[in-house]
Design a protein around this nucleic acid. Structure first.
Ligand SMILES: [Zn+2]
Ligand SMILES: [Zn+2]
Ligand SMILES: [Zn+2]
Ligand SMILES: [Zn+2]
Lengths: 132, 132
DNA sequence: TGCGTTTTTGACAATCATTCTCATTGTCGC
DNA sequence: GCGACAATGAGAATGATTGTCAAAAACGCA
């Protein structure tokens, strides 16, 4: 039952988006990525960029961040559960792991009888380069 | 300089929204609250509900949550820094404090040279009533 | 209580990221 | 190469939120 019936196909567009995500650093919006592809000469529809990013996110291959009052931002991250320390000014991002936080969240939720627990956590600040 | 030049006026609509927020439990969207007011017989425009909520949020009197893929949710909370344990099904909310998390976030940010640090943290789960 | 000034309201239009539609195109197992 | 079917993309649709602006309401003051 681990097999999915869906046949995913390789396309030029999907490769282009993946390649771009592998090169850029930090979080970027779908529109940003679409513009970058256009500048590169890659012809990919905006709808396809959205769909591809959504697919990659569902597959856990990229992370999505929803900054207050802005568009969704996407970034190729390392595997496994982690959180982000993001610079408010330039977007520079550090992945951080917090085992203590994980267990704390789980414990607090259980204490109140909540099950099927998940959480969201982001840390914002101004990075060294932007402090100067 | 603590005085603000702006003269805030008391209106029926503002009172209605405030009163409603004081009664309901959990987080609710602007549209939800607008509908509730309508059901109560209170006549308040949707635009005004949005504006009032925004004002209360800016004043720190209510908390705003932005759940993945949904509208903004508002809730009258207690004072001081805290986080939320929210039921995905019914919205029932428990305010939680995590001193450990606070210091952890601060420490991690400093270690990477980030300053002016803040964070967002929400815990989601299914509450006892909704576990059925 | 009546006035004038200033804020507030609210019906409606506008915005804008994201999603939907669907005819056309591209993949890929055979 | 063929054919079934996933993928694409231009444009329309969606939907929460914000902007507009004339009319209504508050309130300091007389
Ligand atoms: Zn920076
Ligand atoms: Zn975590
Ligand atoms: Zn519940
Ligand atoms: Zn905190």
């Amino acid at each position: 039952m681990t097999e999915s019936g869906t046949a995913v196909r390789n396309t030029r567009q999907r490769s282009a988006v993946s390649a771009l995500l592998a090169e850029v650093d930090g979080f970027h919006s779908a529109q940003d990525l679409h513009a970058m592809l256009r500048d590169r000469g890659e012809r990919v529809g905006l709808t396809t960029v959205y769909r591809t990013l959504q697919g990659l996110a569902d597959a856990g291959e990229i992370d999505v961040m929803r900054p207050p009052g802005g568009e969704h931002l996407y970034r190729r991250c390392s595997e496994g559960h982690h959180h982000h320390l993001v610079c408010r000014a330039c977007g520079r991002t550090v992945e951080v792991a917090g085992p203590t936080v994980e267990s704390w969240a789980e414990r607090v939720a259980r204490q109140h009888g909540y099950v099927d627990v998940s959480h969201t956590l982001e840390i914002f600040g101004t990075c060294p380069s932007c402090t100067g």
